[in-house]
């Protein structure tokens, strides 16, 4: 517990209508509490508009005193008023008397507000490359886009800086996930395969979660099964046990646990997903193609070209 030191008292003042209580030109900082009457805060440049009106119980200047944020308005009495001024010395003497946890609480409230205000102006995006890959994955394939327009749209959507976006475009170019070409003064960007960009975002997401990306942790048997399933022209419907028997016949190493793994990776889709008792499965061609593509372009995705 902090020792109880002498408090420098705040000043109480009675002011007449028109009295300037605070001017931004003044170097003194203080918190102004209105006890009675009315104060108005005006801009200091023409047309000197009223920014807000203070009623009894209102106070201003906390941020100016505690966070050194400038208070840029002139404060004057619009009616005869009674005010309390908490000066820097007064506040300091008060803060010194407080228990440490209360002092920390005040500092924390102030710091958190400051952080929130700053965060509202910054981008929320933490992984800008993932954000760009997601953005481009929604663009059509093989269309030439003006790069400057793409960057402008992407930066508007994400509030990411142009310089960061440009670096991320270079990163995708190095991975051969996009193509750039120049025509006159303009640079054009072509998306080679939107799905590849989608796979790339999933890969980054797995890295962020510190988990292995499913296509890159397949065992040899799983890879063989994947290739085999992709070569099947028809996607027959079979029950779970029939599929297990079918796969086991082709790949003797594959057993029930392998079937469970394949289901987890969504290589098979239930005929009726809404029916929990449905035991009829067919090959999920979309997922099979996704895994194949991820494997085929592994060096592009990993960026180890």
């Amino acid at each position: 517990m902090a020792s109880r030191q002498q408090l420098i008292p705040p000043t109480h003042q009675s002011v007449k209508a028109g009295f300037v209580v605070y001017s931004p030109k003044s170097e003194d900082r203080s918190i102004v509490l209105l006890e009675e009457g009315e104060l108005i805060a005006r801009e200091t440049t023409p047309p000197y508009s009223i920014v807000f009106t203070m009623r009894p119980g209102d106070l201003v200047g906390v941020a100016a005193l505690l966070e050194r944020e400038p208070f840029k308005y002139e404060l004057s009495a619009s009616k005869d008023s009674h005010i309390t001024m908490v000066t820097e010395e007064c506040m300091e003497s008060e803060l010194k008397r407080l228990p440490l946890w209360l002092l920390a609480l005040i500092r924390n409230l102030s710091a958190k507000t400051h952080l929130l205000k700053r965060a509202a102006m910054e981008t929320r995006v933490q992984n800008t490359l993932k954000s760009l890959a997601e953005y481009l994955s929604h663009k059509p394939q093989d269309t030439e886009f003006n790069l400057a327009e793409l960057i402008r749209e992407f930066c508007f959507l994400t509030k990411i800086s142009t310089a960061t976006a440009q670096e991320d475009f270079k990163s995708l170019l190095r991975r051969h996930l996009i193509k750039l070409s120049q025509k006159g003064q303009r640079i054009f960007c072509k998306i080679i395969d939107p799905e590849l960009l989608h796979i790339f975002t999933d890969y980054i997401q797995a890295q962020e979660r510190d988990t292995a990306f499913a296509p890159y942790k397949l065992s040899i048997v799983q890879k063989k099964i994947l290739v085999f399933l992709s070569t099947l022209e028809e996607s027959p419907e079979k029950t779970g046990p029939d599929w297990i028997a079918y796969i086991h016949e082709k790949f003797p190493d594959a057993d029930v646990s392998q079937w469970i793994n394949l289901l987890k990776m969504e290589w098979f889709a239930k005929k009726d997903a809404s029916d929990p008792d449905c035991d009829l499965y067919s090959i999920n061609k979309i997922k099979i193609q996704y895994f194949l593509k991820a494997l085929r372009y592994e060096t592009n995705i990993r960026g180890v070209l």
Binding site: L7, L59, A63, E94, I106, L109, T113, L116
Partner: peptide, 23 residues
Amino acid sequence: EPAWFKSIISFLTGRLQIAGENK
């Protein structure tokens, strides 16, 4: 603490809440 100090605590609390809502 003096009465004005409570006003400052509630002001800071309210301001943090408003900043959170605005964000």
